[in-house]
């Protein structure tokens, strides 16, 4: 899933400093799963903003709404009614950054702000802990690396084994980060495939990654 986290409350307060009526929109997709922008977090952020503004002596009116998804135009329709009556000065989206862009595209005259920092494609390790697993290079080859991704999980995206900074199974940039090449080595050893690691992996073609420009998928079989 797309993993995101809340921006600091001060940053969000600064974004809405000029407004007295805002629409706060959550998303029931990835950001609900990673506890960053679902219905519950919308409620928490709305309360926090109201309390902070009350302290400033300038109360703010916030309507809360959580959409099925913000990355699909059909669900953005759910904002039609609250936005149509011109009641709100701005929309604050608690989806990944796709959400605010979709809302801004639909409502060209509306100011739209992101309440989250979209961080990575990943998964949870334990309750309250998430980590990056994929960099969306667009050409998956993890099966060649013990089904672990060195592009996303090696700090240098190395393709030919651990650098000289791998120590005790940890990455040189932080003792909190596993050296993925150490994990790859252990797994390949377990699978009896360590011989495969002796082959030099040549240049990666990054055209399928962001380096090829913003990406788009067209599925003719699904288009109407």
């Amino acid at each position: 899933m797309v993993v995101a986290e809340s921006k600091p409350i001060e940053e969000i307060l600064a974004m809405v400093a000029d407004f007295d009526k805002i629409l706060l929109t959550g998303c029931k997709g990835c950001v609900t799963v990673c506890n960053a922008g679902g219905q519950k977090e919308v409620g928490i952020l709305a309360s926090a903003l109201k309390i902070a503004r009350k302290k400033e002596g300038r109360e703010i009116e916030i309507e809360e709404i959580t959409l099925e998804r913000q990355c699909d135009p059909e669900y953005i329709d759910q904002l039609e009614e609250p936005i149509a009556n011109d009641k709100y000065e701005a929309v604050v989206s608690m989806a990944c950054s796709v959400g605010p862009q979709y809302i801004a595209k639909r409502y060209e005259d509306m100011l739209v702000f992101p309440a989250l920092n979209t961080t990575f494609i990943g998964g949870s390790l334990e309750h309250g802990v998430w980590a990056e697993f994929c960099q969306a290079c667009g050409s998956c080859g993890i099966h060649n690396f013990g089904t672990l991704c060195p592009i996303a999980r090696c700090a240098k995206s190395l393709l030919n084994g651990p650098c000289g900074g791998s120590a005790g199974g940890k990455c040189e940039i932080s003792p909190e980060i596993d050296c993925v090449w150490h994990l790859i080595y252990e797994r390949m050893s377990r699978l009896g495939q360590v011989d495969k690691m002796a082959n030099v992996v040549m240049f990666k073609d990054w055209t399928t990654s962001r380096d090829g420009g913003p990406r788009k998928i067209v599925r003719e079989d699904l288009k109407q």
Binding site: A155, S157, L158, N160, E172, M202
Partner: peptide, 27 residues
């Protein structure tokens, strides 16, 4: 060489490249 990660350098805000790795640089 691959190069030390910029995290410990004097421009930790930099975007790193690592288009190719040290093995591929040799090649």
């Amino acid at each position: 060489l691959s190069g030390d990660h910029q995290k410990f350098g004097d421009h930790p805000q930099a975007k790193n490249v690592f288009d190719i790795d040290s093995m591929q640089l040799i090649a």
